[in-house]
Write a protein that binds this DNA or RNA. Sequence first.
DNA 1: AGCAAACGATAACAAATGTTTATATTTTCA
DNA 2: TGAAAATATAAACATTTGTTATCGTTTGCT
Lengths: 188, 188
Amino acid sequence: MEALRLAIKQMIHISDEEFEQFVAQTCARTYRRQEILSVPDVVPNELFFIWKGLIRVMIPDQAGFDHTIHFALENQFIADYSSFLQHQPSLYTLQAVEETQVVVLPRSAIEWGYLHMQEGQKLGRLIAEFYFIYQDNRIKNMYARTPKQRYDSITDVFPNIHNRVPQHMIASYLGITPVHLSRLKKQS
Amino acid sequence: MEALRLAIKQMIHISDEEFEQFVAQTCARTYRRQEILSVPDVVPNELFFIWKGLIRVMIPDQAGFDHTIHFALENQFIADYSSFLQHQPSLYTLQAVEETQVVVLPRSAIEWGYLHMQEGQKLGRLIAEFYFIYQDNRIKNMYARTPKQRYDSITDVFPNIHNRVPQHMIASYLGITPVHLSRLKKQS
DNA sequence: AGCAAACGATAACAAATGTTTATATTTTCA
DNA sequence: TGAAAATATAAACATTTGTTATCGTTTGCT
């Protein structure tokens, strides 16, 4: 829980009392390797804060084949936030790549925070802005850089990723096939 | 200005007095066809609200070739918001495709809003969430759908776009060459 | 109204990327 | 620990996408 407190304190001022009340509305949960945290076609009503482990986010194409679109690491918030915000059924699957321990933030706790925490709205704004910036960088990279260039700098965004996920998931994240990534690595 | 008032009122409660004070800190500006609103390598300190016209956002790759990564239409806010938030030099070029009339929102006005408007933080949160959702959709589409599928549904996101921008800009937005888009259209 | 530039389609060819199959190695887990 | 599954590489071939050049049409601008 201290990791969560620190993450929040980096963004807003929050009193100990506010934090204790907020945390009382959350719970801890552990997922085993490969376990699914969130399935498609269900409205997500929980956000997760990872304090140990690694989660990947996947989306199926029309043929039903899954693409890895994101990795979430320690001290990050993760969910199908878009579906959460819109109260819409999720399109994403969230899966623990390793054994993963999270704090579960139910929608009710988030709404309580907006109403009762002094800087609740500001916290929501900063989190949305943070992920906006992250996505903006991704979109920039997709337009302006080749898969090889993105592969070569992937540890800027996901430190140590090569030791934590198999290469075919990285290929999927880059939008190419595992065979092609293997080829790109061989070139220089 | 009424368009801006409506856009804000769709997101938060704002008193007439608050709005008048806010608007007093803004100004209107008109850009001619092809004119540049925002150049790279400069920290952006203005946001734009479009009430007439159409703006495209571009980014250069390593070879210096520009890619169109976004179109902004009437009643939308536009800027290199990521660079604006981070106080960093922009990577984007903003260009008016048609004659375009905007309300200019200086950084000082935004900051004033956060401090003095009752629901200023909430407005900031909702705008960041709105663009987060937009970007999330884009990323989903890039992974799960082909350029042809995205072309066929582009008017969902940019109504009437085919009558307002040349096809080669749409091709650039889709991440393909104009020649290839022409080919895709011929198929079926 | 007229001219120059921009635009979109097309074809031929080149380069990049995907698909399939095979193989050797590593990892998982019962 | 040992067998089954997952993983990474490789090669051959197919498909997709990019590049270049041409041509007729449309558009913008004075």
